[in-house]
Amino acid sequence: MDLSMYPHALAMSAKEFIEWSTNVMDDLVRATGVKKALDKVSDPLMNWGVRNSMYPLHFGIACCALEMAACSGPRFDNERLGLVFRSSPRQCDVLLVNGWVTKKLRPGLRRLYEEMPEPKWVIAMGECAISGGPWYDSYNVVQGVDEFIPVDVYIPGCPPRPEALIDGFLKLHLKIKGQGIGKFMED
């Protein structure tokens, strides 16, 4: 930290002062190793929080949505994993695509994906969402949802059972664990 960058140090504007003090704090935290310690605490904590409150979008397209409904019923009860289906994309962080995506739906689904806040993940559930399934080579069905949005977890099956859906979410847990989203101070 050199004060030569701030020749008018005694007469700073508010903006300059905020920038200067932020730099001082950052340098201080880096030099003393507090930052590393902070990340060590915040990363697992935040990660644990994100993993256990994944809110998928309540957006059923086709028959896999029935498995989704069964999964949220009392027998499989996905709320014990913190999976609460929300109806607004702005409150969600998992887009669960369950069913064939027609070409007419494609721009709408893309928009739903864009409306979700970061961090967000996409799960393709069932054959139709993965590759078009029985509608292979159809004139009106998109051949796999990964053609236009990035997919993190694929759950095969036609349709997959609720256990498979829960397993897919647990696979997503593993992925989130490795992402380090709790490290809010960049190195």
């Binding site: 080579d137 159809s138 004139y139 009106n140």
Partner: peptide, 21 residues
């Protein structure tokens, strides 16, 4: 009504080829 606006074919006609788009 069911297909997107920019489609130029009529899929239930017999001379429409599947996969020939």
């Amino acid at each position: 009504i069911l297909l997107p606006e920019d489609v130029t074919f009529f899929p239930l006609r017999k001379d429409f080829q599947v996969g020939g788009i």
